[in-house]
Design a protein around this nucleic acid. Structure first.
Length: 285
DNA sequence: AGGATACCCTGACCGC
DNA sequence: TGCGGTCAGGGTATCC
């Protein structure tokens, strides 16, 4: 499931294939994903050139020379891939329309060089927006979005400030996009394990020492995942949908009952905010 | 206001 | 083998 590190990996992987490329056409295979596709999307982006890609939290931003920005969210199952159609001048060569599964290919953006960017999303929790680049903060999805956990504004002091006085569980506070933008269930579990903090603790009860441990845990968990993702980037032309997903091993996530790698005790699973939390009862206090 | 819950959706998985 | 039930979860809406 794409969280911030996966989206960042997608951004880095897509960049060389999109930046500087002109859009020649758009095909939508259904009217909506989680949200309706933008009005007159094809008309508005055809002819525009992709500028350097950006990311905000789990949103991938693709500014266009037209002055508008494509905003993509991958939801739970969204994938972006670039297919290169060898075309009629290369008979018998790889041709994506016959070589790959096209089910759930909801949006296709054709590029001048013969490539096509495809948004595939079986569960359709993702969405695609188009908005003037200078006014992205107007988007409902961006209003009230918290600090970037890998940005300069995120510090032990700002973490302490956002947790102070909060009675909600630390796990839920870290998932709150209004506080920190981009953390998801997996990396919150992992960060709390590294910091040895029990996920059910009241956010405001964390002591300075614990905040001092949690802050680098959040950053390093994300940075290591991005590094792991980067190492999996391959040539999109012969990659079928692997973009945005990569093999990454977790210390606690999805490992209920397995022994804790630190102490050997069986890991626990509890439910918080209708979502699974994995942790070690012995190590996390 | 802020916390809790329901909902969207399909594929994977499990038990029978 | 097939079938029904359950679960996964980010963001949003709605409730209390």
């Amino acid at each position: 499931m794409p969280e911030l590190p996966e989206v960042e990996t997608v951004r880095r992987g897509l960049a060389p294939h999109l930046e500087g490329q002109r859009i020649t056409g758009v095909t939508l295979n259904r009217p909506d994903l989680r949200l309706p596709f933008p009005e007159r999307l094809g008309e508005r982006i055809t002819g525009a050139i992709f500028q350097p890609l950006d990311r905000r939290a789990k949103y991938l931003l693709a500014p266009l020379s037209s002055g508008e920005t494509l905003v993509l969210h991958l939801g739970m199952s969204g994938r972006l891939l670039v297919i290169h159609d060898e075309g009629s001048d290369a008979p018998g060569k790889f041709h994506h329309k016959v070589d790959r599964l096209v089910q759930h290919d909801h949006a296709e953006i054709a590029l001048e060089g013969g490539s096509t960017l495809i948004f595939n999303d079986p569960r359709r929790f993702g969405f695609l927006l188009l908005h003037p680049s200078e006014r992205l903060s107007e988007l409902p999805a961006f209003a009230g979005l918290g600090v970037e956990p890998l940005g300069n504004a995120f510090s032990p002091a700002s973490l302490a400030a956002m947790l102070e006085g909060r009675k909600t569980a630390i796990k839920l506070a870290l998932l709150d996009q209004r506080l920190i933008a981009g953390l998801g269930n997996i990396y919150v579990c992992e960060a709390l394990f590294r910091a040895r903090i029990h996920p059910a603790r009241a956010a405001g009860s964390l002591k300075p020492k614990e905040i001092a441990a949690l802050y680098p845990a959040i950053r390093t968990v994300l940075e290591e995942a991005i590094a792991a993702g980067g190492s999996t980037l391959r040539d999109f032309r012969h990659e079928d949908g692997a973009l945005g997903y990569f093999q990454h091993s977790f210390d606690v996530y999805g490992r209920e009952v397995e022994p804790c790698k630190a102490c050997g005790a069986p890991l626990q699973r509890i439910t918080q905010g209708a979502r699974s939390t994995f942790f070690c009862e012995a190590c996390q206090r």
